[in-house]
């Protein structure tokens, strides 16, 4: 089905089917998602996966989703490069979400205060020259729990130069 005629009902899932997500599936989807545009092919991303039953010692994670896919990025000293890297990682994240959704796999993009705390990052093995960009909470969706968006066509904030 063309992307143009797809609805986004799967994308906003908030209720998980608690079955574990096979890592092989996540990796398969990531290997498509890495075809995101990224400046000079720097591929600034790295992935840390935590399944729900491995969150034990991480008290800052509320283990509500079957899996947590943490996407980190290499930091750049140059502000422009830093933004380019961030943009590339978000493109990868969007690819992953679209792909996951075809497998009835929800992937919510989450931001938490603990992502910005170096101690928590160290616990997760995030290196000094890296940062966490976002946490994808992943899990399969019950068909009945998929949220159908109520908003119709978006009103764009648009003007001409």
């Amino acid at each position: 089905m063309k992307l143009m005629v797809r609805s986004n009902e799967w994308i906003s899932n908030r209720q998980w089917d608690m079955s574990p997500v096979p890592q092989a599936l996540i990796l398969e989807l990531l290997n498509h998602a890495v075809w995101a545009p990224n400046h000079r092919n720097r591929e600034p991303w790295r992935f840390i996966y935590i399944s729900r039953n491995n969150t034990g010692g991480l008290d800052f994670i509320q283990a509500q989703a079957p899996g947590y896919l943490i996407i980190t990025m290499n930091n750049e000293n140059d502000a422009n490069k830093q933004n380019e890297n961030l943009a590339a990682v978000f493109c990868l994240i969007q690819n992953f979400r679209l792909l996951a959704w075809e497998q009835k796999l929800g992937a919510n993009v989450c931001f938490y205060e603990w992502m910005y705390d170096r101690r928590n990052c160290q616990q997760l093995g995030v290196m000094d020259k890296e940062r966490i960009v976002a946490v994808l909470e992943v899990g399969f969706c019950n068909e009945s729990s998929a949220v159908v968006p109520t908003s119709s066509a978006a009103v764009l904030n648009w003007r001409s130069l």
């Binding site: 990796l27 290997n31 998602a33 591929e43 991303w45 996966y49 935590i50």
Partner: peptide, 19 residues
Amino acid sequence: KGRSRTPAERNWTEFVWNE
């Protein structure tokens, strides 16, 4: 032509909690 990408496996770590 596209420039090839690094396999995701090479940038992948599974976090395992050891008590």
